[in-house]
Every structure is written in structure tokens, then in C-alpha cells.
Design a binder for these strands. Structure first.
Lengths: 216, 216
DNA sequence: GAGCCGGGGTGACAATTGTCACAGACTTAC
DNA sequence: GTAAGTCTGTGACAATTGTCACCCCGGCTC
């Protein structure tokens, strides 16, 4: 664990600079690092948390599972963010309601449950972080709800693509129509048709295995 | 304000018995009561909070607004619960993302912003309450998302009616088809058709201005 | 009573989305 | 090379939902 410490220190300095001095040290003391490979499952629905999860590097996609196992994309988690549910589920020993997958190779800082009470009590920057983080997740969820309720599939598709491009920082998305359809709980044919329309409208270029986003 | 104090005390004892002794006293000291009439608007989207809002009596419906002013029902707030957003928006001086209306005459306990930091820091039962409350709202939001994404309108309608009956504690719902359609972001005709089917299936009795839920 | 209005029922039709079927293009394994 | 598998395009059709038109009913006012 001591070999991890300098790395934790570096990650915290980079992505959690707003933590107060004592808090940084405390986390370095109790936390451990965990690495996930791209594509790896990080948490399942129904699983218990033993730690609060902070994202130190990489990119995570969070999904909500339907009754028949459909996996609908909800939002991304970036370095500097935390899994909101992990904070609370860990504290209350409840189970996850979402499913998380690493999109890229990802590093997580795991803070064991027993330490959380102390952080919350003693470090103002910690509880501010938790609240702000929760608030942000809540907002993203509301935004998602807006789209599902008020928007049609073509608008949701555009929003989705824009979002993915923004997160990946690359307007060449290597993704198949089938994958998009799953993330939006639609079907491949529908996505193909809508993408074709978007290509005619000069919003994207379509290629085998990747889509180019024209952000004009 | 001092005339309110005994009432605050009573409300807290009844609906927030899990607060530790010192916390109850502290809240009685700093909080004020506010009454809302049935139908009254409690908060608008885009509004700033000056207080954290605890529900002491009555029933509140929360809505999310669409771009064209459509108001879609998200969830209820009951006595013993708090508006999750008010906790964080108040603390961070951000604006509301939802719209709240009193369904019945409602009493709210308002805790001024400056007091919140202290509550969070000194009272473990407060921050547990906040976390648990946030977690519960988050879960309700996820549940709502599930329904909108995965379910068809007839299932959402049944879920909606069941929910309203549960909240009102009365299986005679005095609500018009038009109002239901607004809450579900549908249209009156569709709701009427589906209700008619449900009547044939002996799930409800339809009457002018009210609907009887047959919870067999 | 006549007229109005809100609540509700219903048929016809349109738009969106999901489903099925099948074809062509490219990749990979052999 | 062939064969199999994956990715995409497309036409036909069905189901759901939204929209329009128009109806009746009950209660209200005048």
C-alpha cells in the first residue's frame, strides 16, 4: 500500500486540488488505488459497496438496467468526480442502483467505509465536495429525464453523440449503430435511419465502425 | 417567532424523531414555519433558495418543466422528508431545477442558509438525514427514469394512479383526465382511451371528476 | 327553457418508432 | 481463394401515441 501512496498523492493534487490540506493527507493514509481495464465492469446493480469511489483517471459510463437486461446510458463519470451513489450506499450499506463500466483504462481511489464518517465530520471541503457532486449527478439525471420525456429520438441521438464527442475529446467516435441503439434503448434500424438523415443534413459523416461528428 | 416555537417542536417530534436531542433544539432555535395553501406554488424552476425546506405537514408534488412549459410530475414530498435540492442549492446558492406545488395545505420548516454548515458539522443525525434523503430522491428519480424509458403509457398510467392513491391514502382520486395527461406529458384522449381499457379490465371505476382505484 | 362550458367518449388519421426480412460490403479465419 | 461473421442500408409493415373533429352529458347562468 505504501508504494501506492505517492501515486494517490499525485492523483489527488491533480484532480482534487480543492480538498483541504489535512483531508488530502487523510485520504492518502486510508485510501487504496484500483485499476480497471477499458471495458471492465466496475459495479453491478444490486451490488454492495465497501468503498466510496473517486475517479482519478480514465472514463466511466453509468447505465440503468431495465427488467429484461437492457442497459440504458445515463451519464459519464470523469476524473475529479465521485460516484454519488457509492458515497451514500457505502455509508448506509445499501446496494447500487446503477451499473458502471470503464470506457477507457480507469484508476479509482477507494476510501473504505469506516473512514467516511470522519471525513464528513472533520473536513468541510469533503462535505462540500459530496454535496456538490450529488447535486451535479442529480442535475444530470434531471437532464436525462428531460430528454427522455420531452425529446424525440432524433434529438436524443444528437444529444448523445455530442455528449460522447465531448467526453472523448475526439470527434471520431468509434462506435457501432448497434451500441448506440442499446445506449438509447432503441433499435439498430432506427438509429441507422436517423444517422442517415443526419448525414444528409451534414451533421455527421458515416463510416464503417466510426462516426465523424461535424460540429458546425 | 417565539409563538411558533412550540409548534415547530411538535412537528419535529412527530416527523423527525430520529434527530438527536441537540439538533432538535438547534432547529427550534433557528427555523421558522411557513404555511402553504393547497394548490399554491412553493418553488419555481430557476428560483434561489434562502432556506433548506423540511416538510412538516401536508403533501407536495414536484414537477420538471419542459421547454414549452409542460409540467411533468416527478415525485411527492411527504412530512418527514426534505427537498433534496433545497439542501444543496441553499448551501451553494444555486437555483432550483424543479417546480413544487402544494397538493394539500402544507407546513414547511425553513432553516436559514447560515445555520446549515453548523448542522452538518455538529450533528451526525443531520448529515445522515441529508444523505439518506438525497439517496431516496435519487432512487425515485431513477425509478421515474425507468418508467419513462422502459414502460409504455398504459403501464406508466397504472403506476401513476397507484402512486397517487398511495400518497392520498384514498382510492377515490378527484382528478380529471386532462390533469393526468399533463402530469404524464400525454394527451387527454390517450389517457381517456387507456382508462377505458382499465375500466373494462376492472382496474378502475370511472366517474365524472373522479376515478376509483380497485386495488385488487 | 336556452345557451355555455368543462369533462369525457370516440372514430379517423398521421407521425414516430419498433420489427422483420433481406441484401450488400467489408473482415477475419481457414 | 472460400466461408462465416459483423456492420450497415433499406423497404414493408405493425403498434403506439398524438392530433383533429365532433359528439354527448351534466351543471351552471341568465
Amino acid at each position: 500500500m505504501s508504494t501506492d501512496s505517492p501515486k494517490i498523492h499525485q492523483y489527488i493534487e491533480t484532480h482534487f486540488p480543492f480538498f483541504e490540506a489535512g483531508l488530502k493527507e487523510k485520504i492518502e493514509e486510508v485510501a487504496i488505488l484500483k485499476h480497471f481495464r477499458a471495458g471492465e465492469l466496475i459495479m453491478r446493480q444490486g451490488q454492495y459497496f465497501k468503498h466510496t469511489v473517486l475517479i482519478a483517471a480514465g472514463l466511466i459510463k453509468l447505465y440503468r438496467e431495465g427488467d429484461d437486461g437492457e442497459e440504458v446510458f445515463i451519464y459519464h463519470l470523469n476524473p475529479g468526480q465521485a460516484c454519488a451513489l457509492s458515497i451514500i450506499c457505502a455509508a448506509k450499506q445499501e446496494t447500487s442502483q446503477v451499473l458502471g463500466k470503464a470506457v477507457e483504462d480507469t484508476v479509482a481511489i477507494l476510501i473504505p467505509v469506516p473512514a467516511i464518517d470522519e471525513l464528513m465530520k472533520n473536513y468541510k471541503s469533503w462535505y462540500y465536495f459530496v454535496l456538490e457532486n450529488y447535486r451535479d449527478r442529480f442535475d444530470e439525471l434531471l437532464l436525462m429525464l428531460d430528454h427522455v420525456i420531452f425529446k424525440s429520438m432524433d434529438q436524443r441521438l444528437e444529444f448523445y453523440l455530442e455528449n460522447q464527442v465531448k467526453q472523448k475529446g475526439n470527434n471520431q467516435l468509434s462506435i457501432t449503430h448497434q451500441e448506440i441503439a442499446q445506449d438509447l434503448n432503441s433499435s439498430r434500424e432506427v438509429i441507422s435511419r436517423l444517422l442517415k438523415k443526419m448525414e444528409i443534413d451534414k451533421k455527421v459523416n458515416l463510416n464503417r465502425n466510426y462516426i465523424e461528428w461535424l460540429n458546425c
